[in-house]
């Protein structure tokens, strides 16, 4: 059962250069189906549109970002609701209550002039009515922190008194305090050292297994994906190019880009020289016609230059967008 899906989602940045409009196609025709009770990883290199995709999934679309086409639907009360058809009030209500967000730079997401306690209070009061502060706010929050293994004293700290790892864990605690159906995590570990990374990843895993909800996890770190994700989607230049279970992605990558990506990972005992994909990722303002990876692909054919391959199921549960496996084109 899917809990969030997108249909032909296109989100472009519109940049006005001397009266001439340019489109940065950060998310270009993406179809997603994210299931209940899973951790879905989105992987891809910097600048491939990962962050834009999750901003759009979360409905945080502010100029210059524009949703050009497509829909993002949340499953609510057994029905699918298009979030771009909702008014601001409804959108405000479902945020945090239904879908919450763990930001990338935890260093600056907490208000520097208020104690952490007030962040919790504001985020909860925005969605719940609290009559008895002691029973309905303080105790549940303290229980929640204890369940996550965080010291209760952090509530009386200012953000600058906490370490980076602790701040990131506060954002995890904030994102889960209302027990939302979906949590979107945008590179929650990038600013942390590996020890802290492990702590945060374990925390997310524990939260997911106790809440049985969905986590959409974005990072370029394949090691973290291997650790946490049930399924992985690989993004390249604004498009989803492969999607499969974690075992499949690591054990049997189909798309040449994914093969390069997996081939670049070090393995214990393996001393072979790693090759990288030649060239650099394309500009999203002027992406190549046809398959966006063909200029860097050593197996490209004339067909790859002429048409865009569509993301289709190649093996059960394993989708790829490559003419090596299927001839289905995107109709553009």
């Amino acid at each position: 059962m899917s809990v969030l899906n997108t249909e032909g989602l296109k989100a472009y940045y519109i940049i006005d250069v001397l009266g001439e409009k340019r489109y940065v196609r950060a998310v270009d025709d993406v179809d997603l189906e994210i299931r209940e009770n899973e951790i879905y990883g989105i992987a891809g290199e910097s600048g491939c549109g990962k962050t834009t995709l999750i901003k759009t999934l979360f409905g945080m679309v502010e100029p210059p970002l524009n949703v050009m086409d497509g829909k993002v639907k949340y499953k609510m009360n057994a029905e699918y609701a298009d979030i771009f058809a909702m008014d601001n009030k409804r959108m405000r209500e479902i945020r945090w209550e239904y879908i919450s967000y763990i930001p990338q730079g935890s260093m600056s997401v907490l208000n520097p002039v208020q104690k952490v306690r007030y962040s919790f209070e504001h985020f909860i009061k925005a969605h719940r009515r609290i009559r008895n502060k002691e029973e309905e706010f303080i105790k549940p929050v303290e229980r929640h922190l204890q369940a996550l293994g965080l010291p209760v004293q952090i509530l009386d700290s200012y953000p600058h008194q906490l370490s980076g790892g602790m701040r990131q864990r506060v954002t995890v605690a904030l994102a889960t305090v209302l027990q939302p159906k979906i949590i979107i995590a945008d590179e929650p570990t990038t600013a942390l050292d590996v020890v802290m990374q492990r702590g945060v990843i374990q925390l997310l895993k524990d939260v997911q297994s106790s809440l049985k909800n969905t986590i959409i996890m974005v990072t370029h770190d394949m090691g973290i994906h291997a650790n946490i994700a049930d399924r992985i989607g690989i993004m390249y230049a604004g498009k989803m190019i492969e999607e499969a279970s974690t075992e499949e992605i690591f054990g049997n990558p189909l798309h040449p880009y994914t093969q390069y990506l997996i081939g670049s990972l070090p393995k214990i005992g393996d001393k072979s020289y790693k090759t990288s994909a030649p060239g650099a990722p394309p500009s999203l303002i002027n992406p190549p016609e046809g398959c966006r990876f063909y200029p860097r692909c050593d197996r490209a054919t004339d067909e790859c230059k002429a048409a865009i391959p569509k993301l289709v199921e190649i093996e059960p549960g394993h989708k790829a967008a490559c003419f090596l496996y299927s001839g289905v084109k995107e109709d553009e």
Binding site: E93, N111, P112, Q114
Partner: peptide, 28 residues
């Protein structure tokens, strides 16, 4: 600032964001 965007993502009311997150910092 990030903390204002984050408060917005949390669905806080506009007046709350304006006073507790923006003005409080801008007054310094």
């Amino acid at each position: 600032e990030d903390y204002v965007m984050y408060a917005r993502a949390g669905g806080l009311r506009d007046t709350k964001i304006a006073f507790n997150y923006v003005i409080k910092n801008a007054m310094l």
